[in-house]
């Protein structure tokens, strides 16, 4: 365990040095937050129907989503991708460590470090200037923190799985391009999931992508409370376990191909 924590810590420290990237990210995310807020403002003003979320809840959802954007803005792990493309990935096996755990540790810090650097400032700015409200209750706030942490693990497990598919599609044009777009759209970051049409609501509720953004955010604004909140978190956890398992199996199969075929 210690070795994977060491990898995680070291990668985390490295990534914390990318301050310029973080600043640029904060700027962009604030800008798009404003744009999205205006769109929904227009939407609420032009609609007379009753909506699944109140205007105030939606604004908080949007800003919190901007703060946590990196949970769902995916790319494959660049360094691992380069290793796979050059065929050097086999040499990873000369280290006395579990490859899945190593890649997971990398992916986790790859998510956590930039997320931490961007989320806190955006949260503060949006809270001071753009109507990001405090959580619905103390319980909601605590459950949100827990759920966001699970979302981080979920996010990392998706990164590893998507990166692993590169073992088959070396050019990186296949699943690794398509999946991130779908995950992004169905996470709630574009349109809060309660606004989706009823017919596909059930599908959206089932997909793991919901656990990245929608679940923690709706817990925060109190849109999911009590048993609904716990149920949503159970859904998150179930997907974490499933994806960890699938990721491990897929990597094992990819490695079998690698050690037989030589990459």
């Amino acid at each position: 365990m210690k070795k994977y924590l060491a990898i995680l810590r070291s990668r985390f420290q490295t990534l914390l040095q990318y301050r310029t990237a973080a600043l640029a990210g904060i700027g962009t995310q604030l800008f798009f937050g404003l744009v999205r807020m205006m769109i929904f403002d227009g939407f609420f003003h032009s609609s007379t129907q009753s909506q699944p979320m109140t205007s105030a809840q939606t604004v908080t959802y949007i800003w919190l989503g901007q703060a946590l954007l990196l949970l769902t803005l995916f790319d494959v792990d660049k360094e691992v991708a380069a290793l796979i493309r050059s065929g050097n990935v086999a040499y990873e096996l000369t280290k006395p460590a579990d490859l899945y755990a190593m890649w997971f540790a990398r992916a986790f810090s790859g998510r956590a470090a930039p997320l931490l650097m961007r989320s806190v400032p955006i949260f503060v700015v949006a809270g001071l200037f753009f109507d990001l409200r405090p959580p619905a209750s103390v319980t909601a706030g605590l459950l949100f923190l827990l759920s966001a942490s699970v979302a981080l693990v979920l996010s990392a497990s998706m990164v590893v799985l998507i990166t692993t598919t590169l073992l088959w599609t070396i050019s990186g044009q296949g699943i690794s391009r398509l999946a991130p777009v779908l995950i992004f759209f169905f996470s709630g970051i574009v349109i809060p999931l309660p606004f989706f049409p009823d017919r596909i609501q059930r599908v959206v509720d089932f997909l793991p992508s919901r656990g990245l953004i929608d679940t923690p955010l709706r817990i925060y604004i109190g849109h999911l409370g009590g048993s609904a909140a716990l149920l949503a978190m159970a859904h998150q956890l179930a997907w974490v376990l499933t994806l960890l398992l699938i990721g491990r199996i897929v990597l094992m199969r990819g490695l079998r191909k690698l050690v037989i075929q030589g990459g």
Binding site: K2, A6, I7, S10, T14, T94, K95
Partner: peptide
């Protein structure tokens, strides 16, 4: 097998942990 963005000594420390 060193880490590109780490100082050499930190790569060594990391290997210490990986090899226990």
């Amino acid at each position: 097998q060193l880490w590109w963005d780490l100082p050499v000594i930190e790569s060594f420390d990391l290997l210490r942990d990986i090899y226990s």
